[in-house]
Design a protein around this nucleic acid. Structure first.
Length: 795
DNA sequence: ATGCGCCAAGTTTTT
DNA sequence: CTTGGCGCAT
């Protein structure tokens, strides 16, 4: 189970302006790095390739600023993830101990400002931050209240449109006139309602954090000037991932004091879907005319083999800044390109490889990472790892905070902190059940909506709702009374508050009663862990009104923040989550068409480029060894489907890579009928730039560079000819899985005849244990085993 | 009002 | 294979 992390972001020791700064300038920095570190005033763009020591440069630069007498509180370092901020804080801690430089994510930066200036946007300072699930609930309610037809759209789509609007700084009023497309028109009508309801609930969603601050800065010149002066030296990490709102914020804080230093790499921009605008970094030099540009092109992380693969791949993109990847390191092992029959074998083999390496070589579980495109793909690996007792950590898994019992507890806390938090109230008003059903809630909501009141306030005025039966009104009144009892404890230590509410609300009893049979990961155990986390938080925040801080913390931590470097475990994560990390040995699984260039973005060349960058990010995490793999078939939404390798694989320097096919050439049933080349490949891969290799324009068959020796075997499925396919199919006997029954006689190609002793599992996992007539006993996955019914002769 | 069970839908990436 | 939404029986 995931551990809760309680990293404090605010550092509360303002009294150390004169602490000596321990910049160890004797540490070797390259010329380019030195240049960046020593830059003080004016805008700077640091184009930092992967593994180029960017964090080191940034922290050294901050130390250098401090050494030049710039007050720590004049500096702010904005990052994209908490993880990156923590890393920076630790590194700066060794260079300049005790300095109070603000470091954190954009969202946290804005959240903090918004606490102070909440009234300016119509909020109170105890406003709540809705997470994605909360906004989804709120959106549904807004859609209902706006009374629009959702026949051709969904709340999710509307939410996406509104989110995009906010990221582009388009407010509800601006959207009315301009929209054209159908679902945008609907969204435009929901938008103001949604926003009004957020305001009533004294809440913001993630986008609002940026949006409100960006607007404030634009509409209040005084405030803008004040904050510009307050934060005279701003650094932005991962600048290629900023959206327009973030751009605007940074921009308006760098007018009077244009000492803005941004680091980034256009090739690692992978958040376009979230509104990130690559132009922010591509046009930085235009936006800030006297900008100093520094390129960090030397890579300290990966072997030349890995870098060449990354470089070849990314060359196929058009929207980028030319950049070399240089290294002094030794060649290292060839990059491995591996094909598997299916995802299970892929998982098993990777688990075996890792197990063997740990046993035979000088490496540990923490040296390994497995990346994938979607979280769902970690399932099979999890299974394989667990069965081998290989320690692993999933950075994402079933997220702790998303479990029902944790969300319920958090909802109670949210409600205590912000009684207007409607989503929280709706969540807990009848959990455990208190006789407040759907009808009652509907009436409460109608009353609240028509009076623009928070639901709890409506509940307080339950007497004014004449449509409500007396019995229901009583229940509601009892709930309000209970809430008031909780409220009294709001300022108590978090732990006490949580323990108190567990009893007072009857929630603990409710859990004890409802969860009898569940053993692993029982809700009660999660509740205990939650309590532990509050204890920890209390310990770290002895003074401040910790409930609000705690809730903000929880809202703004992401799953990627759960990753713990100190654990000696194999890491399983998405490539998005992997950004900024590095591992000696990396496996990237499911590099398959429709998955890596995800099918939902294949029509848009820009998005395909982003997918390519995603793979680039994955590849460049690897220090020493890298394996890319794909399968012939993969279980998707419950059933096996044939798949083909990603077209990106064709863009790699395959002649120098090591291609591996499954060593046991097991036949399989239901051979995929289309191993055909993906259509997208027929499109010219990249038009534009000078330097793309002509291989791309050849038809698939000729595209393969000549292979040395046994290249035939090494051909990926994607390139298998139709003729071979037919061949293959002819040899493959099609036997439906259902043909196998317990007790029946079967024949195996290697072991000969035998009898099925047991049959377990279903579908692709169906496994037969066979007692062979020669005395041995073996288990097989029916879907893959060379097993046929009856007592036959096999050639 | 509650709670169970069925059916349908929809599956990217995250602050 | 999972979640969420809805309808039915208690």
């Amino acid at each position: 189970m995931r551990k809760m992390t309680c990293t404090d972001v605010e550092q509360a020791n303002p009294g150390y302006p004169q602490t000596p700064v321990l910049v160890d300038m004797s540490e070797q920095l390259t010329e380019a790095q030195q240049e960046a570190v020593e830059h003080i005033d004016g805008p700077m763009l640091i184009l930092a390739g992967p593994g180029s020591g960017k964090t080191r440069v940034v922290t050294h630069r901050i130390a250098n600023l401090l050494q030049h007498g710039i007050a720590p509180h004049r500096i702010a370092a904005l990052t994209f993830t908490n993880k990156a901020a923590d890393e920076m804080r630790i590194r700066l801690g060794t260079l300049a101990p005790g300095q109070d430089v603000w470091m954190g994510t954009f969202h946290r930066f804005c959240a903090r400002l918004l606490r102070r200036y909440a009234p300016l946007v119509g909020l109170q300072e105890n406003y709540s931050i809705y997470d994605t699930a909360d906004s989804k609930q709120a959106m549904k309610r807004a859609v209902t209240a706006a009374n629009v037809s959702t026949s051709h759209t969904s709340p999710e789509q509307i939410a996406a449109v509104i989110s995009r609007a906010k990221n582009r700084l388009v407010g509800p009023e601006m959207m009315q006139g301009q929209s054209l497309r159908a679902n945008e028109t609907v969204a435009a009508r929901v938008y103001p309602v949604y926003q009004q309801q957020l305001l009533t609930a004294n809440a913001v969603d993630f986008d609002d954090l940026l949006f409100h601050i960006a607007r404030l800065l634009r509409e209040s010149p005084e405030l803008r000037a004040e904050l510009d002066q307050r934060y005279q030296y701003i650094m932005v990490d991962e600048y290629q991932d900023t959206n327009l709102a973030q751009y605007a914020i940074v921009r308006s804080l760098s007018i009077d004091y244009p000492n803005l230093a941004v680091t980034g790499d256009p090739d690692q921009s992978i958040y376009g879907w979230r509104g990130a605008d690559l132009n922010n970094i591509l046009d930085f030099e235009k936006d800030y005319p006297h900008v100093k540009t520094v390129r960090l092109e030397k890579n300290y992380r990966s072997t030349p083999n890995i870098l060449r693969a990354a470089d070849q791949l990314i060359r196929h993109n058009t929207r980028r800044k030319n950049k070399q990847l240089l290294t002094d390191r030794e060649e290292g092992a060839a990059v491995v390109l591996r094909m598997y029959e299916d995802g299970y074998r892929e998982a098993d083999d990777i688990a075996d490889q890792i197990t063997a390496a740990i046993a035979m070589e000088d490496c540990r579980p923490r040296d390994f990472a497995v990346f994938c495109r979607m979280n769902a793909l970690t399932r099979s690996l999890e299974h394989a790892f667990r069965s081998r007792s290989l320690p692993y950590q999933i950075v994402n898994g079933v997220e702790f905070y998303q479990r029902k019992e944790i969300k319920d507890l958090l909802a109670y806390l949210h409600l205590i902190n912000n009684p207007a938090h409607d989503v929280a109230l709706l969540r807990v008003i009848n959990v455990p059940t208190r006789g407040i059903g759907a009808k009652t809630i509907e009436r409460l909501r109608d009353f609240a909506d028509s009076h623009r009141l928070p639901l709890l306030e409506a509940a307080r005025r339950v007497d004014q709702i004449d449509t409500l039966p007396a019995r229901s009104a009583t229940k509601v009144r009892q709930f309000v009374e209970m809430f008031d009892r909780l409220s009294i404890k709001a300022t108590a230590a978090l732990e006490d508050l949580v323990l108190y509410l567990l009893e007072e609300t009857g929630y603990r009893k409710y859990l004890e009663k409802s969860s009898v049979d569940e053993q692993d990961n029982s809700p009660l155990a999660n509740v205990d862990e939650f309590v532990t986390a509050t204890v920890e938080f209390d310990r770290q925040h002895p003074d401040d009104g910790s409930l609000e801080a705690f809730l903000e913390q929880v809202a703004l931590v992401s799953d990627t923040d759960a990753w713990e470097e100190s654990n000696d475990r194999v890491t399983l994560m998405t490539m998005h989550a992997a950004k900024g990390l590095e591992f000696p040995r990396v496996f990237i699984i499911a590099v398959e068409d429709d998955l890596l260039p995800h099918y939902r973005c294949k029509e848009d060349p820009m998005q395909v480029e982003e997918e390519r960058r995603l793979l680039f990010v994955g590849i460049t995490r690897a220090e020493q060894q890298l394996q890319l793999s794909y399968c012939k078939r993969r279980a998707m939404r419950g059933e096996m489907r044939p798949v083909v390798g990603s077209p990106f694989l064709m863009e790699l320097p395959r002649e120098e890579m090591r291609s591996v096919e499954p060593d046991d050439s097991n036949q399989f049933f239901d051979a995929p009928d289309e191993f055909a080349y993906p259509d997208s490949w027929d499109l010219p891969a990249v038009d534009a730039n000078d330097d793309h290799d002509e291989l791309c324009q050849l038809p698939p068959e000729e595209q393969m560079p000549e292979k040395p020796a046994k290249s035939d075997k090494a051909l990926p499925a994607a390139l298998t000819t139709a003729a071979k396919l037919l061949d293959n199919q002819d040899q493959t006997q099609k036997v439906p899985l259902s043909a196998f029954k317990q007790g029946m006689v079967v024949t195996h190609a290697e072991y000969g005849g035998g009898r099925i002793a047991t049959l377990t599992g279903r579908g692709p996992k169906c496994t037969a244990t066979v007692e062979f007539f020669n005395g041995t006993q073996r288990s097989f996955r029916l879907a893959f085993a060379k097993l046929v019914p009856g007592d036959q002769d096999l050639d």
